[in-house]
Structures are given as structure tokens and as C-alpha cells.
Simulated assay, not measured.
Amino acid sequence: MAIQLKSARVERWPVAGAFVISRGAREHVDVVVAEIDDDGAPGRGEGTPIDYLGEDATGCRDAILRVMPHLAGMSAEGARGAIQELMGPGAARNALDCALWDAEARRRGVPLWRLAGCDGAPAARITAFTISLAAPDRMAADAAAAAEKGFCLFKLKLTGTGDRERVAAVRGAAPDARLIVDANESWGQIDLLAEAEALAELGVEMIEQPVPVGADALLDGVYAPIPFIADESCQTAADVARIGAFYDGVNIKLDKAGGLTEALRIADAADAAGLAIMVGCMLSTSLAIAPAFVLTQRARWVDLDGPALLARDRENGFRFGGGEVAPPDPKPNP
């Protein structure tokens, strides 16, 4: 058994409207796709470069091309172990790692969740739907439109200024929705407890990454009425022990972790530390969501709306309806 790289390429997918957070706006997303063959069993994986780590899709593609000669003659399982040492976390390793998982599952004839050691097949879950950063009235309108489509859990992108007004506007437009917020590191200069208390009064149930990476100690002694979840501050399993004293949970994203292999390690570390798990994603197609979905049965919050934020998705992608994300319909027998 030996793997071969069939393709490593960059694809561009348009966003539906624009995706705006505190660090900027995007009208499209460039992803890197790895396709391999494991003795006749195909495998595909997709990674979205993390811009705040300086990644870009072309560089990720080139990283995959550089590492493949070092994997010559290896099985998919052996190559998965090797790339944990040969490549750092990020989108390139994620795409290749997930392609290797996919190929191994197909070659063995077992579902990915079983190969990953999960207790059962993951079922449909309520997913957050992201409301991009904008003026309060714009965010309220976007939330109302999303509610009409059946979404019932909204993740609001915030920026550290005027956030209470944004949340209040969304609450007014979608009074029955569940709300979580993502500050994207923008709350380093504000009263964290006062802000958390104000948002809790508006029904917010969780705050993601309030402070900048490296400034996590700002949360020390802040006993907020709602949990703080680490995103950018928790990239790998090794980070869990370092940030566990300041956060109540971690957001696991395969692109940050560098694939499903490390994501499973993060989940184990979070469980051991008594931290809640959130499973998130970058802007992506359903190809990237498939391996992340195996973690949803372990998660308190699921935020896998990447494909729902695109103008179009891959054929036979994940299904979004009634506020839930569900696996694609089984392909009919020929």
C-alpha cells in the first residue's frame, strides 16, 4: 500500500454578499485542495488559508507539493503520522491530512467517523449562522433574513466598539434566536466583565476570543455570567493547558489544528481539562466540513456554516435547513 498525490490545486469560491469581521472583509475565499490515491482508493481534503497567520492558498499548495516526496512508499496511515512532524499546523497540512483520512476510510470500507474512533455516526446538529460585522441596522436585517431561512442560532461578529447596540438590534430583529458572539480579539481595551454582563442581559450565551492572542491573562479573575471560548488562542492540543485557566472552552477548527488528526487530540485535551468544545470552520465548501463533522457529537456548540455563506457549494454538499447542518443525502444506488 502506497499513496500517490493526484492533484494539489487552488480553487476560488465566491461569498454570498460579503463576509466581514473586525480584521476585514472578503468577497471570495481561496482554498487548497489535495487529492491522493491509496492503492485505488481516492481521498480528497480541503484547507482554507488562515490570513492572520500569514497563509495564502498558493503557499499552501506549494507546501503540499514539497512534502509529498518525503511520503513516497508510505500508507495513508503512515503518512498521516509523518506529516504531523514534517508540516506545521495550518491549511496545507489540513488538506493533506483530511485527504489521507478520506482515502484510508475508503480503502478499508468504513465510515470516517468509525475510523476516527467516534462512538456513533454524527447526526444533524443545530449550527450557528454568522452575521457579519456591520452597522446595527444592517446586522438586524441580516439576522431577520437568516431567521426566515430557518436559522435559529446566530454568531455575531463584533469589534469592541458599539457592540451592545449591534447585539440589541439583532435581538430585536430575531427575538427567539439563540445568540453567541465572536469578538475576534478586539476587546483588549474594554471592561470585559461589564461587557459580558451587558451581553448576557441580551441573551448572549457565549463569547468567543474576546482578547488578543498572548493577552489571555486579561481574563484572569473575570468571573463572567457567560463562558469565554478560545479560538485564535488555541491552535493545537499543546495550547489547552496554557489557556485553560482563562477560558471555559475551545473552538476546534481543522485549519488551525492542521487536520483531523490534531483536532481529535485537541478534543481529548479539552475533555481532560473539563473545557467545553465548539466545532467551527473557516469559509469553506462542504469538502472541508465533512471531516470536521465527525467531531460534532462531542461539541456543545457547532458552527459549520462555511458552505452556507458561499454563493454556491460543491455538488451533493451538506444540507442546511431548519437551523441544522446535516450530511449530504446518500447517493442512490446505480
Results as ranks from 00 to 15, higher is better:
residue 2 A to F: 15
residue 4 Q to Y: 13
residue 18 A to F: 14
residue 20 V to M: 06
residue 26 R to M: 06
residue 30 D to W: 11
residue 35 E to H: 03
residue 39 D to I: 08
residue 43 G to I: 05
residue 45 G to H: 01
residue 54 G to P: 01
residue 64 I to E: 06
residue 68 M to E: 14
residue 71 L to A: 09
residue 73 G to C: 09
residue 83 I to P: 09
residue 85 E to F: 13
residue 89 P to R: 03
residue 96 L to N: 03
residue 100 L to V: 11
residue 110 V to C: 05
residue 110 V to N: 06
residue 110 V to K: 12
residue 112 L to D: 07
residue 113 W to Y: 14
residue 113 W to D: 03
residue 114 R to A: 13
residue 119 D to L: 11
residue 123 A to M: 04
residue 125 R to M: 06
residue 129 F to G: 00
residue 132 S to W: 08
residue 133 L to K: 04
residue 133 L to T: 04
residue 134 A to P: 09
residue 136 P to F: 05
residue 137 D to W: 10
residue 144 A to P: 13
residue 149 K to G: 06
residue 150 G to R: 09
residue 152 C to W: 07
residue 162 G to H: 14
residue 164 R to H: 15
residue 165 E to A: 15
residue 169 A to P: 10
residue 171 R to W: 03
residue 173 A to P: 10
residue 174 A to I: 04
residue 176 D to I: 07
residue 180 I to W: 00
residue 180 I to H: 02
residue 181 V to H: 12
residue 183 A to N: 08
residue 183 A to Y: 09
residue 193 L to D: 07
residue 194 A to W: 14
residue 197 E to Y: 06
residue 198 A to Y: 11
residue 200 A to H: 15
residue 203 G to P: 03
residue 205 E to M: 06
residue 208 E to Y: 04
residue 211 V to A: 01
residue 216 D to L: 08
residue 219 L to D: 12
residue 220 D to S: 14
residue 223 Y to E: 13
residue 225 P to G: 08
residue 226 I to N: 14
residue 228 F to N: 12
residue 235 Q to D: 09
residue 237 A to L: 07
residue 238 A to W: 12
residue 239 D to C: 04
residue 240 V to A: 03
residue 241 A to L: 09
residue 245 A to N: 10
residue 245 A to Q: 15
residue 246 F to I: 08
residue 253 K to V: 00
residue 264 L to V: 07
residue 268 D to S: 15
residue 270 A to L: 11
residue 270 A to S: 11
residue 274 G to R: 12
residue 274 G to S: 12
residue 276 A to V: 07
residue 279 V to W: 00
residue 279 V to R: 00
residue 281 C to S: 00
residue 291 P to Q: 02
residue 292 A to D: 02
residue 297 Q to S: 15
residue 298 R to K: 14
residue 300 R to C: 02
residue 302 V to E: 02
residue 314 R to C: 09
residue 315 E to V: 11
residue 315 E to N: 11
residue 318 F to I: 00
residue 322 G to D: 02
residue 323 G to C: 00
residue 325 V to T: 05
residue 333 N to K: 11
residue 334 P to G: 15
